[in-house]
Design a protein around this nucleic acid. Structure first.
Lengths: 114, 114
DNA sequence: CTATCATATCGATAATGATCGATATGACAA
DNA sequence: TTGTCATATCGATCATTATCGATATGATAG
């Protein structure tokens, strides 16, 4: 529950320097990506299109409560969306969000010098 | 001291799914980005081109030892390079590294579905 | 209704890391 | 050499979080 996009643009202030709130929000997204289990989870969902939680415990070798925790973190970061189908939860990646974060790295940070 | 690039390509294994070591290395890079102070530090250096450590304590409002810690983390992640000039340390971003990480998000994770 | 199954939440533990003050290293000036 | 200044490292504290087992929620089947 934290999808306020302070990162989708250009904070005013000193010439391209991140302001504190924007940096805080962006850091949360990177924190969601800063775990090997979550990165593998993301790659599995990206490759599978729509993947059930129950099909993640095996490949990731983690307990159900741990998987639920990780999907929750990725969802809060706006990187995953979930859809209920009966008792099952199916997860998909949010490509626009990933592209948005990629752009911050590529344009806002690498760009000025590249 | 951890710039082994397991992320610059395509681990073999199951169809685009990150293997554990690659995920571990990539997670370390994102962990370096997962701090608001470091993100602001990066943006200051990106905007300034080559910035002295001594010019970071003020804008970031952190002590010298804390700044040194953060530059060290970013350097270990390959995101910053440092150059000594007399007693001063000047830092620059590594645009190729940032672009490389951006590509992982944009191509390997967002790509398959976008 | 009750039973069952998939997922979510809770509580505890252990590990990681951000921050600071204090100290060490290393470079320049005199 | 000695003194000074910028940076690096050390040690401690506090906060965050990954993980698990146990339990709660919620949906389907009978």
């Amino acid at each position: 529950m934290d999808r306020s996009d302070a990162l989708d643009c250009c904070a005013p202030g000193v010439e391209g320097i991140f302001e504190e709130v924007a940096a805080h929000d962006l850091a949360q997204v990177f924190a969601a990506l800063a775990d090997p289990v979550r990165l593998r989870l993301l790659s599995i969902v990206a490759a599978g299109g729509e993947v059930c939680s129950c099909n993640l415990e095996g490949p990731l070798n983690k307990r159900q409560s741990t998987i639920s925790h990780h999907t929750s973190v990725l969802h809060s970061a706006g990187l995953l969306v979930g859809r209920r189908r009966g008792r099952w939860m199916y997860w998909s990646v949010v490509p626009e969000r990933l592209a948005q974060v990629a752009r911050v790295l590529d344009v806002e940070l690498a760009g000025p010098l590249a």
